[in-house]
Each structure stands twice: as C-alpha cells, then as structure tokens.
C-alpha cells in the first residue's frame, strides 16, 4: 500500500489562483497545503514542510518551475518528492518536455477546481503504483 496523500506544496505566483487552490485542495480536498509564490520560496519551505507532493507552476518570477524542479531533483533529500506541473503551457510537446525533466504529470490550466482534489489523488495513486512496481522490479 502506498502512503496516503496528506501534504501538498503548491507553488504559484498568481495570488488568485493560490486562493482558489487553497479553497479547492484545502477546504474541499482536506489536504494540508503550503502555498509558495515562487520557486525560491518553495525551495526554502519544502525542507521544512515535508510535502508528499509538489504542484508547480511553470512561469513564475524570481525562479520559474523548470528551474525549481531541476534544483529539487539535484537535492538528494528532496529528489524523491513527486512534482506535478500546473501550467497553461500544456501543449503536447511541452508536456513531453516536463515529463522528461522529472515531473510525474501535468495538470493544464485552466483547471476545474471542483475536480482538482480527485485529479491530484488519481495522479498520486498512479505514481505510487508505478513507484512500487519500480521498487519491486529493482
């Protein structure tokens, strides 16, 4: 059995979207949320918050999502945390690029906030199963 999804870090520069996410994932989904306004902030807080999953916007000031992901993956204690990109730039080739850089999935903007908790859970379960298979095989 996989670990239950409880803690999510959501990195997003747009304040309104952060508010919607907070409402959707926190109030509706019941997850513990840590909201960061950019990658730099997230990198400071992830080691503290210990999220199970990171939702990462791509285009952000100070440090964008791609850079943030690269830093996460290069930090050994953070590298195992699955990252899902939340982006408006979700065309097929872009999605492919994100996955190649280490993201487990991509949720395209605009997303349906009422469907978001269930969507995140599906990704988590899918990832957990793949991860387990990977571990079993290895």
């Amino acid at each position: 059995m996989t670990k239950a999804l409880e803690r999510i870090t959501y990195v997003e520069d747009d304040q309104d979207i952060r508010a919607i996410a907070e409402l959707a994932l926190g109030a509706l989904g019941g997850y513990q949320l840590d909201l960061c306004e950019n990658g730099k902030v997230a990198l400071e807080r992830v080691p503290v918050f210990h999220p199970d999953l990171i939702l990462l916007d791509v285009m952000m000031p100070v440090m964008d999502g791609t850079e943030t992901l690269r830093t996460l993956k290069s930090t050994p204690e953070l590298a195992d945390i699955p990252v899902v990109f939340m982006t408006a730039k979700a065309q097929r080739h872009e999605v492919q690029g994100y996955k190649e850089s280490g993201a487990v999935d991509v949720i395209a903007k605009p997303f349906d906030p009422t469907d978001l908790p269930a969507r995140v859970m599906r990704i988590w379960e899918l990832h957990g199963r793949d991860h387990q298979i990977g571990e079993t095989m290895s």
Binding site: D14, D16, I17, A88, K109, P110, F111, D112, P113, T114
Partner: peptide, 16 residues
C-alpha cells in the same frame, strides 16, 4: 498563457 492565468482564477472561482 497570460490569458489562461486569469481565466484559471475566474473559472476556478466560479466553479467553486
């Protein structure tokens, strides 16, 4: 992208 960002907020807010 720039259009989608506010749209995400609007659509999310309305949906919620």
């Amino acid at each position: 992208h720039e259009l989608r960002t506010p749209l995400t907020s609007i659509k999310g807010a309305l949906g919620l």
